[in-house]
Design a protein around this nucleic acid. Structure first.
Length: 597
RNA sequence: AGCCCUGUAGUUCAAUGGAUAGAAUAGAAGUUUCCUAAACUUUAGAUGCAAGUUCGAUUCUUGUCGGGGCUACCA
């Protein structure tokens, strides 16, 4: 069943009968009727006026009259300027309603067998996760779910930047100041623990730089030649030579970080199917560059550094290997991309969830892969998202101006707890459920807050203002759901068989009920649209509108009136249907639902 | 300097070229003998500026003025 298509066919045949006008389906523009007018869908007449040589109002009237009489779908119409607003008949919407209720999970497509890979998160191992990572992770994870709902098999992966000078810095600082301390002995979360030593390194380094600058050395030179920086470089060299002790410490400290990350991932209900580590892909990248060099895709400078010239493609020249032969960011990404298509030969697409500041990097990466003759290069896609600004400007992780993820979540759980208790929601609640409830609400608020914004756009977060629980928020949707669940519970306790009601042909629907059925129907289109636009925000907007409509209905319609006739049963069934859609939609946003709140 | 993104109510976000530019929040005024008031109703408030294309422009084009990013032998 396809409402848009059904109506278009009716319009097409009406145009033919009334005006002997043959019109292709794709030339019929049909849109949802906007708020202030009666009707469900609007046919836009303007584009056809020149062909029909008549006034749009006249065409609209003729068409509307014909459809109302001859189409079982259309029950009424009105014309405003060049817009023909069409009302859907009760019988048609009831058939839609029955059709949807026969579906196990309305809107989800069955498997197409196609496989895709989605990369997200991709942290460095020297810094804990922050709010920017949260946007990245929720976006990537949600998109994976949206892909699945559209019939794809998805491989969720992250790339972990586990090698390089940054992790060596933490290692040096731990050697110097660590006193064999561990996350366990200090009671710190592993990623926070290692991050602390990274900061210690930077502080000590800065101190030594200042000293050198005071002694008359330029800042640029001082930055490269402090004692502690030399130690870090030495460690990097030892690591590349696979020196036992160094590798052992590296493994140990990264292990702490992974434990820390894992506990955050668990908290936010996110998982990966596979991790990639740069330490395992950078050598492959290097070898591919050597090969490209041999095939003259790349070239060598006098100082032995390797470059690619992309000026013909409208980009600059880009370095691929340093003069000392070590790899750069691009080298590793080339290796990682190739390895992934080797590991999963069936994937037809790879999606990188990475911030918009790397738009240029990915354009070049995909171009290089194309030049290396990988035909899948065209199927690589950079899912670019905007930064999160603070009122003071952008977050700067190097200067510690960030919103820590764990801390933010903790604060939100506390706020949820406080708010719940103020409202007296838990007065008859079992204590053991209450912690779960705070978590569900807090994370629901956070995830919805981050996902409701178009990914491409920058957004603002003010740490001074807590994230709302009212209005267009996660908890609003959770609350709507919890209320429906309590209705269902009551229906069940009265043994009402609302699931198998038979709506006779003459069952009357109210306008708001019709609107709800139509909106539920649109979930299917929304799932597709959200993938086309690579935007979970489309789902968020949809489910919010659904809840608004439902709350409107809830307010105006008493469901249990003592009679419990077919009208009541229908209302329960409609509520049940809405609850299922809310659940399906929030599943795509990775937001959990409480049974009551 | 070049390239890319961006500019909508006080604030945070919407609007596949369509109607009177939607919500939320903050503001003002209401709705609890009745299924959960984290809800609902009413009210006031915005497209940076200037041209162009179009029956129609927040959306496309050009110019202009703001904001951000990238153009690193950092990742």
């Amino acid at each position: 069943m396809n409402i848009l298509n059904d109506i278009k066919l009716e319009i097409q045949s009406a145009l033919k009968v009334i005006f002997t006008y043959e019109c292709h389906l794709e030339n019929i523009t049909l849109e949802e009727t906007i708020k202030n007018y009666d009707g469900f869908y609007t046919f836009i007449i303007f584009p056809h006026t020149s062909n029909l040589k008549q006034k749009p109002e006249h065409i609209g009237e003729k068409l509307g009259e014909y459809l109302t009489v001859n189409s079982s779908i259309i029950s009424d119409f009105n014309v405003v300027k060049g817009f023909l607003n069409l009302d859907l008949s009760d019988n048609y919407l009831i058939s839609i309603f029955n059709h949807i209720s026969n579906h196990k999970s309305w809107g989800y497509k069955s498997s197409s067998g196609k496989e895709v890979m989605v990369e997200f998160s991709s942290p460095n191992t020297n810094k804990p996760l922050h709010l920017g990572h949260m946007r990245n992770i929720f976006l990537g994870y949600s998109l994976s779910k949206i892909l699945e709902a559209n019939g794809y098999k998805v491989h969720k992966v992250q790339i972990i930047n586990d090698r390089g000078i940054h992790i060596c810095k933490s290692m040096v600082a731990w050697n110097l100041f660590g006193n064999n301390e561990t996350p366990k002995s200090s009671g710190m979360k592993g990623d926070k623990f290692v991050g602390k030593f990274y900061v210690m390194f930077e502080n000590e380094h800065k101190k030594q730089v200042d000293k050198l600058v005071n002694n008359g050395i330029s800042e640029e030179e001082a930055n490269l030649s402090t004692g502690i920086m030399k130690m870090a470089k030495d460690v990097l060299l030892k690591w590349e030579n696979k020196e036992n002790q160094t590798v052992a410490l590296w493994k140990k400290m990264n292990g702490w970080v992974y434990e820390g990350f894992q506990s955050t991932y668990d908290l936010i209900d996110v998982s990966f199917d596979k991790n990639y580590y740069e330490s395992e892909t950078y050598l492959l990248g290097k070898s591919k560059i050597q090969k490209g060099l041999k095939n003259e895709i790349f070239y060598k400078e006098k100082d032995n550094s390797v470059w690619v010239d992309l000026t013909e493609d409208g980009y600059d020249k880009k370095i691929l290997l340093r003069s000392d032969g070590t790899s750069v960011y691009m080298t590793q990404d080339i290796g990682t991309a190739i390895k992934r298509f080797e590991d999963f030969p069936k994937i037809i697409k790879q999606i990188y969830t990475v911030g918009s500041e790397q738009d240029y990097h990915f354009k070049i990466l995909f171009k290089i892969l194309e030049k290396l003759n990988y035909n899948w290069a065209k199927e690589c896609f950079h899912l670019s998202y905007g930064m999160i600004d603070l009122p003071s400007g952008k977050m700067k992780s190097r200067e510690g101006i960030v919103v820590d993820a764990d801390q933010l979540i903790y604060n939100m759980i506390q706020t949820a707890k406080k708010r719940t208790n103020e409202l007296g929601k838990l007065d008859d609640f079992q204590n053991d459920n209450s912690e779960d409830l705070y978590n569900i609400i807090a994370l629901g608020a956070l995830k919805y807050f981050l996902l409701k914004v178009d990914p491409k756009k920058r957004m603002l977060f003010d740490p001074e203002e807590s994230i709302d629980f009212q209005g267009n928020t996660g908890p609003f949707i959770q609350y709507t759901y919890a209320r429906i669940l309590s209705l269902i519970k009551r229906g069940d306790s009265l043994n009402l068989d609302y699931k198998n009601i038979d709506l006779s042909k003459n069952f009357q629907l109210t306008n708001i009920q019709k609107k709800i059925i139509n909106h539920v129907y649109l979930f299917s289109d929304t799932i597709k649209l959200s993938l086309d636009m690579y935007s979970p925000a489309v789902i968020a907007k949809y489910v919010y509108d659904l809840c608004k409509l439902y709350n409107n209905f809830y307010q105006e319609n008493k469901i249990f009136d003592g009679k419990e006739d077919v009208t009541s049963l229908f209302k329960i069934k409609l509520s049940y249907m809405v609850s299922k859609i809310i659940k399906s939609a929030l599943y795509l946003l990775n937001i959990n639902l409480p049974n009551r709140m």
